[in-house]
């Protein structure tokens, strides 16, 4: 089983390492992995070492999807494609911010690749700066709360919907807190021809400011509060939704993390939290979670 080799430099409790392990277990050894710049890339490949047991390539921050396209095309051209899976996995910044154009191109072209976004909701590798995936009112180093701000002023970019709109045959959201489910979805994605997309929610102990032992627990709370809806979308239609029985109030999720701590101490924090609850309520209704 080609998990990451130990000895990598990921933080204790690292969500990226967990996500990579689940992806690797799901795709098996007959695969080529493409990784944009980011935590996962840096922590696994300090020259002359590598934590990867499968063929792996990193080029730049914004081009993983395009590199994956080239890998897949070359395998076909050289008659070496066989059952080899071509899988890109990158962080939220490398996927839905700076990597947006490349992934859009690859999905529009219908390239036979699977892209896994490991979404820890900020630029962790550079020191927790805001990305397009940072949730509403979260504190990051470039969206700090202050007298004029409750933190990040915008909700998360709905990347899975964008990828589904490209006509992808399979888009699924998942979470590293549900490893068996995540592995099932990744396995399904790589088994489908064409560009498939997995968006995995991944709590970061360092950036979200919680204890290293709580990575899985926090991820579950995101799902249980309906802030992270988990569903599968096939040929544009949502075909499967993970139901959330009696969703917990979003406070349960927020208060467990340093990045939302200010909402519980600042004047007007109640209203700010209410707006986050409204996002969860919208998810419940929109995705039919209850």
């Amino acid at each position: 089983m080609s998990r990451l080799a130990p000895g990598h430099r990921g933080c204790a409790g690292c969500c990226d390492a967990m996500a990579a392990n689940f992806v690797l277990e799901a795709i098996g050894d007959d695969a080529i992995v493409i990784n944009p710049t980011g935590c996962l890339e840096v922590m696994t490949t300090p020259y002359p070492e590598s934590a990867w047991e499968v063929p792996w390539i990193h080029s730049l921050f914004e081009n993983a999807a395009a590199v994956a396209t080239g890998v897949e095309a070359a395998l076909r051209a050289l008659g070496r494609k066989g059952d080899t899976k071509v899988v890109a996995m990158g962080g939220d910044g490398g996927t839905l911010d700076i990597g947006m154009q490349a992934i859009s191109g690859a999905f529009e072209r219908g390239d036979d690749i699977t892209y896994v976004c490991i979404d820890n909701e900020a630029y962790m590798n550079t020191g927790v700066q805001r990305s397009g995936a940072t949730p509403f009112n979260a504190s990051t180093t470039t969206s700090p709360p202050g007298s004029q701000s409750f933190g990040n002023p915008r909700p998360k970019k709905n990347m899975p919907a964008i990828m589904a709109a490209h006509g992808s045959p399979y888009v699924a959201t998942t979470s590293i807190s549900y490893p068996k489910e995540m592995m099932r979805k990744v396995k399904k994605a790589v088994g489908i021809e064409g560009p498939t997309y997995i968006h995995a929610h991944a709590p970061c102990t360092t950036g979200w400011r919680f204890d290293t032992s709580k990575t899985v627990e926090i991820g579950k709370l995101a799902v249980e509060t309906a802030l992270w809806p988990m569903y599968e979308q096939e040929e544009g239609e949502i075909t499967k939704v993970r139901k959330v029985k009696q969703p917990k109030p979003v406070e349960d999720y927020l208060k467990a993390q340093g990045r939302f701590k200010h909402l519980f101490t600042m004047e007007g924090g109640d209203e700010a939290i209410a707006k986050i609850q409204a996002i969860a309520d919208w998810n419940i209704k929109h995705y039919g979670l209850e």
Binding site: I32, I34, I57, S59, L60, E62, N63, A65, A66, V67, A68, T69, G70, V71, E72, A73, A74, L75, R76, A77, L78, G79, R80, Q101, A102, S104, G105, E108, R109
Partner: peptide
């Protein structure tokens, strides 16, 4: 034994070739 990829930018044109060349193309 050739694939022609119509990409969405020059950035992706050369990036695809990074992956392809590393595969041995």
């Amino acid at each position: 034994n050739c694939e022609y990829i119509n990409v969405e930018s020059e950035f992706s044109a050369i990036s695809t070739l990074v992956g392809a060349s590393a595969v041995g193309a």
